[in-house]
Design a protein around this nucleic acid. Structure first.
Lengths: 275, 275
DNA sequence: GTTCCGCATGAATCGATAG
DNA sequence: ACTATCGATTCATGCGGAA
């Protein structure tokens, strides 16, 4: 029996991160507040100042990450005066200068994107998942995210009830792993760098940025059980609770007392597991 | 009856473009040789020199494009020494400095991407389709690319036969336009900035980068019949022949004599149409 | 218990109106 | 003029109540 710990800290992650030792984190998965977004909850960082604001934080992230670890950054630039803002591109350049390797850019295809109609553009239906590494050698457990061949993405289903079954499996978080066992024996293939997940749009009283599937997928891919995760912008704690459910230790940092209180209330600090 | 012209020129587009008048093109759709790719055919532009090589060309493109026109650039950076190369990002910066507006970044999700297996990354299954404009006001015919409501992903279908109809339509390439008419009257919705097209499987003896659906989609979206297209890297001529089929005039430029000869042989210079 | 339908709800964006 | 706020637009999803 082992302990799975979930430590949550209140404060500005730039400062709190200084208390973490070097090379202790296997995966950083986070979705920082986007520029000029969520003004009411977070302060709303301006696009022009975003890079400057982020770099001291990412410098600490570089320090605490193990050489074999991975940093996954979920972000998307908004439109400013009819153009896509370039601060995310600039951020990639600056992170490389800081010592990060920009290993890959995954695309998160949000199947249910925000509605709306404009004369000069369509709905924005994707976000970036930027993978950065400290070293060109890093841990990656590709077999953990293999998917059954010819599935819901391919479209040759026998009947609708089967469709629904599969979709239901994909919905509940833990099911992804378990239900795959139904498909063992059938052929499985490796996924690509395009991820298809719908955003959760309901009823939890917090602005959950992403569905549980998203951190779950990267946690499977880049960590094993009992590894250590970090989310410096814990927010509503999606990443932390998924990590705990998957038997990974984690550290979360949240600057807003309301969210911090909610995190402390909803997430057990220690979970005992027989591996 | 009108004439639809397809003019094809042999030469370096940087030079050939100088012979075109200002403000004469409604849509530039092109897929330039990617850095360090296709060395044997195009000479292979090095990643570090890519931007420098491209800017004089894009400067001419800016000149020949109508203020209401659009420039769509299909490109994707390759991996160099374990990292995504940054020359495409740099190109976006420099094009903006040159006077282009970076209106949008569409994602082309290649449903059947190139196979392969690597220990540190998955298959690359998407490319960028960067939309640049000369002016913040430009022509966009959104209704031309409306799609049947996404029931195949929604799961609230009355019966399966309907599902199959929709899926079959989406599968066959050129059907996109035609079969949609079967669904007029039924509900249609606007697409998003994520495009799902399969790459064409070989058959034609050339390195055709994209399927016909791709230029077709943008031609529908940004031009009307009898408008003028430009592809400065005509290659095998996919864009040109699609343009002609859709009753759009076009200008193609190709630097390699072999391809030029093939283009001249395969594409009629004038087509007479009753609109 | 199922299946079905109505309804609220989003990391949005533009253009017009107001200070 | 230049910035802040607001209404209009739109659609996949999950939830709850109804058949």
């Amino acid at each position: 029996m082992i302990e799975i710990k979930t430590d949550i800290f209140l404060g500005d992650c730039k400062e709190v991160l200084k208390h973490l030792p070097d090379n202790c984190i296997d995966l950083i998965f986070t979705s920082p507040p986007y520029a000029d977004q969520r003004k009411n909850t977070y302060g709303g960082i301006q696009a022009e100042k975003y890079v400057e604001w982020f770099l001291p934080i990412s410098n600490e992230l570089l320090r605490v990450l193990k050489p074999t670890g991975t940093f996954v950054l979920n972000i998307k630039e908004k439109v400013i005066e009819g153009e896509r803002s370039t601060y995310v591109l600039e951020l990639i350049f600056e992170l490389r200068k800081q010592g990060w390797f920009w290993t890959e850019e995954f695309i998160w295809h949000k199947k249910n994107s925000y509605p709306g109609k404009w004369s000069n553009r369509f709905r924005d239906s994707w976000e970036r998942l930027l993978q950065f590494n400290k070293d060109k050698k890093f841990n990656m457990y590709q077999d953990e995210v293999k998917v059954p061949i010819g599935d819901w993405a391919k479209g040759r289903l026998k009947n609708l009830s089967e469709t629904d079954k599969i979709r239901d499996n994909a919905k509940n978080g833990s099911g992804f792993g378990k239900n795959i066992s139904n498909w063992v024996g059938k052929e499985t293939v490796y996924p690509t760098n395009v991820l298809h997940f719908a955003t959760e749009c309901s009823n939890k009283n917090h602005p959950a940025a992403f569905p549980e599937n998203l951190p779950e997928w990267f946690i499977k891919l880049f960590t094993k059980e009992n590894d250590m995760l970090l989310d410096p912008f814990a927010g509503s704690g999606t990443t932390l609770s998924v990590a705990q459910r998957m038997n990974r230790n984690s550290v979360g940092i949240e600057i807003l007392p309301e969210y911090y209180d909610m995190l402390k209330k909803n997430i057990e600090p220690i979970k005992y597991v027989i591996l």
